[in-house]
Every structure is written in structure tokens, then in C-alpha cells.
């Protein structure tokens, strides 16, 4: 190969470096925009709640905060989103002129039809979550997991993941999966975060029947247990 040829090659290589870097940056930028901005928009469909619900208004009108409507049943199970029968106690007829209330009364109360609320925090079927253990036993705030929903005047848009069918609230609003507050994500890691660090208060588990003739190991020990996620059969606590 001659010296001239080499020179020619250097020149052409120098000349091509600019576009190569440029295209690299273009590709990088395009994919970043796609990944961070367009992809989330494509991934989630936007759904409106059937009725725009004002939590602030309701919280003001009741005495016991969240538990006035989202209450625990006598057996300790959690009622979740109120059923029509509960709402009817106050809303048998429209109390004001808010178009949402009118719509609620006309479409649902009058027809005896349950409101098909979209549940932001709905977990997969394999997940068993006990509200009573967290709210009553561990004395946690509703807001720790659900955020400031009680302070909302309008229902947020419900974003449904087109692939999984679950609410965006599970993965979290932030598409990167990072969160600033405990209530911004509801995946298993987020449960584990608390359970791995916090001690859980356990009272003595008394046996339901008097079988005092049975000594250890039938008498349960008092004391704190490191975490429900580290004990034997821990998986089955949440995954039945």
C-alpha cells in the first residue's frame, strides 16, 4: 500500500467521524425520548372513574376519617371500597347540585347498580394482604401505602397497563421505578422494604381452646419477631 493511499484514508476517516458521532447521539436521544417519554404513554391507557369523587368533601362530613367509609368488619376483614348500600345511607337522593352526585344518584342509586370503581391499588389474585394486621396491629397510617388520597378533590385518571392489566400505581408513577415516598409504589419489593427493616409487634398468640395440659411447644412465646418475611413459611403469609 502506498503512502498516498494511507493519507487519503486518514482524511476520509476524519471526515466521517462527525456524522458517526452525530448519528450516535441522534440514536441515543431518540431512544431516550422514546423510552422515557413515549413508551409510558403507549404502555398505559387512560381511564376515567365512572364518578369523579371528592374525598375532601366526604372527609369533612364524617367523624372517623378514612374508616368511616373504608371500615373493618366485625370479623376483622376490611371492607375496601364502599358498596352502593353504604352510599345510599346519605345519597338516597341528591343532596346538592354537583353534576357528579346527580349522575351517581340517577345512574346508580336509582337503578340499584354498583359503581364500577377502578381500584388503583388492586393487587394480583395471588397476593393476600391483611389490612387489619397493618392498620390495627401495626398502627400504620392509611397514607403510608395509599398516599394523600383523602385530600384529593377529584378522582385521578386511572392508568391501566396494557400488557398486565394492572394499575400504574403498582409500578409507580415514575416509569424508572424509583420513588420518593412509601406510597408511590406497591410492588413486592416495597412491602419487603418495610418488613426487612422493621420489627413487627406480636402479642402472645393464645390458643383458641384451653389445652393447658399441653406444655411447650404449644405455649406461644411473647416477644417481638424480626419480621413476618423471615420466619418459617413466610412466603405463605402473603402468597396463599
Amino acid at each position: 500500500m502506498s503512502i498516498q493511499d494511507d493519507k487519503a484514508k486518514e482524511v476520509s476517516a476524519d471526515g466521517a467521524a462527525g456524522p458517526i458521532i452525530l448519528f450516535f447521539i441522534l440514536g441515543l436521544a431518540a431512544s431516550l425520548v422514546f423510552g422515557w417519554v413515549i413508551f409510558p404513554k403507549l404502555l398505559y391507557s387512560q381511564k376515567k372513574q365512572p364518578i369523579d369523587f371528592n374525598h375532601v368533601l366526604h372527609v369533612e362530613a364524617v367523624d372517623e376519617g378514612c374508616e368511616s367509609c373504608h371500615f373493618f368488619r366485625e370479623d376483622g376483614s376490611f371492607s375496601g371500597i364502599p358498596e352502593l348500600a353504604q352510599c345510599v345511607d346519605c345519597h338516597e337522593e341528591a343532596q346538592g347540585e354537583d353534576p357528579n352526585e346527580v349522575k351517581f344518584v340517577e345512574e346508580y342509586v336509582a337503578n340499584g347498580r354498583e359503581v364500577p370503581w377502578l381500584v388503583y391499588a388492586r393487587q394480583p389474585d395471588c397476593v393476600f394482604f391483611s389490612h387489619v394486621a397493618h392498620v390495627k396491629e401495626a398502627e400504620m397510617d392509611c397514607g403510608t401505602c395509599h398516599g394523600h388520597i383523602g385530600e384529593s378533590e377529584h378522582s385521578r385518571v386511572y392508568e391501566e397497563n396494557r400488557i398486565t392489566g394492572y394499575s400504574r400505581d403498582i409500578w409507580g408513577k415514575n416509569i424508572s421505578g424509583l420513588k420518593k415516598h412509601t406510597w408511590e409504589r406497591m410492588k413486592m419489593d416495597d412491602c419487603a422494604e418495610c418488613h426487612a427493616t422493621k420489627e413487627i409487634k406480636t402479642d402472645v398468640e393464645t390458643l383458641p381452646w384451653p389445652i393447658n395440659w399441653l406444655p411447650l411447644p404449644y405455649k406461644k412465646q411473647t416477644g417481638n419477631q424480626a419480621s413476618v418475611t423471615t420466619v418459617k413459611e413466610a412466603c405463605f403469609v402473603c402468597h396463599k
Binding site: A16, F24, L32, G35, F39, G177
Partner: peptide, 23 residues
Amino acid sequence: RSFLSFIIGGAAGTAISPLPWKL
């Protein structure tokens, strides 16, 4: 070369975007 560069840039960008991990 430019085309390949675009693809590589795209791949690099995709890797640092949430897209593959979320998918």
C-alpha cells in the same frame, strides 16, 4: 457507518431508558 452508529446509539439509549426493564 452512520447507520450503524445510529443503531448503537439507539441501543445504548434504550438500555439506559426504563423500556427494557419495565417490559
